[in-house]
Design a protein around this nucleic acid. Structure first.
Length: 218
DNA sequence: CTCCCGATAT
DNA sequence: ATATCAGGAG
């Protein structure tokens, strides 16, 4: 716990200068387009999500716009992002629920957001932080999970416990920054398959870094 | 735990 | 061939 706090402070000091001013990867204009982008981003790169959404975001902007689509047509539109049946069903379900239960306004609490089909804590955290500047938790995606384990910010493997650990060792104002930085660093440097420890600014404090670096020799 | 799933890197 | 990508539901 104490060690993890010290560690996460070092991590933030190193990563904030690199990534704090980098915008989020998912491109969107309207609030519901962010909802669509986040749903599509499950197990799919932001790059591909943007490539796909660019083909129809001009024509579809609000929950009302998307609610008018048929399941089949929406599936075709989003197919390259994978899981296209589930994602299409979730987008239509979300559009209809927001339209009918929330008067077209996306809810601003975790409690309400996770009632929406396809919304777990990670998705809800992104929506809350981006649309309302509310931080009820830390976004834990595949990158945050991997880097948290490599840097020993947690000893757990499941997203819920990892989120709880990250919330415990950082102040709330840093929650969004932490996940944002870990995600970008995970993409660019601390990659799942071939981590570039040689050029990593964390290699001296990272237990996962191989022999030449300080991390592994502790 | 398994399943959903296409596209890319290794 | 296999692992991976801003996950969530059953």
């Amino acid at each position: 716990m104490k060690e993890a706090k010290t560690q996460v402070n070092k991590v933030l000091n190193k990563l904030i200068p690199l990534y704090a001013h980098v915008p989020i990867g998912i491109k969107y204009v309207t609030p519901f387009q962010l909802v669509v982008g986040v749903i599509l981003s499950a197990q799919c790169t932001d790059e591909r999500v943007n490539q796909v959404t660019a083909t129809f975001f001009d024509d579809f902007q609000t929950a009302q716009d998307f609610a008018q689509l048929s399941q089949a047509k929406l599936e075709k539109m989003i197919k390259p992002t994978g899981f296209f049946r589930n994602k299409a069903k979730n987008i239509l379900g979300a559009a209809n629920m927001i339209l009918h239960d929330y008067q077209g306004v996306i809810p601003n609490s975790m409690k309400e957001l996770i009632k929406i089909p396809g919304f777990g804590r990670k998705t809800a955290n992104v929506i809350l932080a981006r649309l309302y500047e509310i931080n009820e938790g830390v976004c834990v995606d595949t990158h945050v999970m991997r880097l948290s384990q490599r840097l020993r910010l947690t000893k757990h493997k499941d997203p819920i416990r990892i989120e709880r650990d990250l919330m415990a060792i950082t102040s709330q104002k840093h929650w969004e920054t932490l996940s944002h930085c870990l995600i970008w660093h995970g993409r660019k440097v601390c990659k799942a398959r071939k981590p570039n420890c040689t050029e990593c600014v964390l290699n001296k404090i990272c237990p996962f870094a191989p022999a030449p670096f300080a991390g592994s020799s502790v």
